[in-house]
């Protein structure tokens, strides 16, 4: 399978039109993703307005250091996947594959770190409905905070998992010369998806980890 013989589907006139359609479709899909996550963020905003102190207290129970490292990991992975697209455009197959593998590895590292966070929260009794042992005046409001925390981060981790799988496939295909300077749309779309996962996390970080740290 070579990129040069990649056929243009018959509804398109030429490869340019095909790429335009594919990227536009992906961006439209990303807009729906923004609204998917958006409901959770909207729920977060409204609940936080109702229970500001409880949310600050809940946020102080999260692991800020780990959260910061996770953010750095995702930002770096975003850069790596951008570089892999660049490498493919310049014809560098090895470097591109390496970059993709690095991106996927960083994604997995993120998931593992988050797993540790979840485990720590389990031991602390911060998981609503499964093990929630908080007492005191903020306990109820914190439960709502942690509900949202789990909805948001689990949904995000689901996206990271899908992203890692996609990146794996793309790395494999890149290595097997499926893409070159002329044709690399699937890789481009995967990268866009991965960047969106990163952007979501960019907003998760201050809203979950940084509230009420100075108090």
């Amino acid at each position: 399978m070579s990129a040069r013989t990649h056929p243009v589907p018959e509804q398109f006139d030429d490869p340019v039109q095909q790429r335009e359609a594919a990227t536009l479709g992906m961006w439209a899909f990303l807009a729906t993703e923004v609204l998917f996550f958006g409901v959770l963020f909207a729920g977060y905003t409204l609940c936080r307005v109702m229970f500001p102190e409880a949310f600050a207290e809940g946020s102080r129970h999260t692991d800020m250091l780990l959260g910061t490292i996770e953010t750095a990991v995702l930002l770096t992975s975003s850069c790596a996947v951008a570089l892999s697209v660049r490498e493919v455009q310049l014809g560098g197959r090895r470097a591109a594959t390496a970059m993709l593998a690095l991106t996927a590895a960083l994604g997995i590292a993120f998931l593992v770190m988050h797993g540790f966070e979840y485990y720590a929260e389990y031991r602390e009794g911060l998981i609503p409905a499964i093990r929630y042992t908080q007492q005191g005046v903020y306990a109820r409001g914190m439960e709502i905070f942690y509900c949202l925390y789990y909805f948001i981060t689990l949904f995000h981790s689901l996206h990271v998992t899908v992203g890692v799988l996609l990146l794996g496939v793309m790395a494999w295909r890149t290595w097997h010369r499926a893409f070159d300077q002329d044709y690399h749309t699937p890789l481009e779309l995967t990268a866009l998806y991965w960047h969106l996962v990163d952007i979501v996390w960019i907003f998760v970080y201050p809203l979950i980890y940084l509230v009420g740290r100075s108090g």
Partner: peptide, 16 residues
Amino acid sequence: FGVGIFDPALGGDPVL
């Protein structure tokens, strides 16, 4: 799971 942001008994808000 019986937890969430809409249940008034838990402090949530059905109007949301």
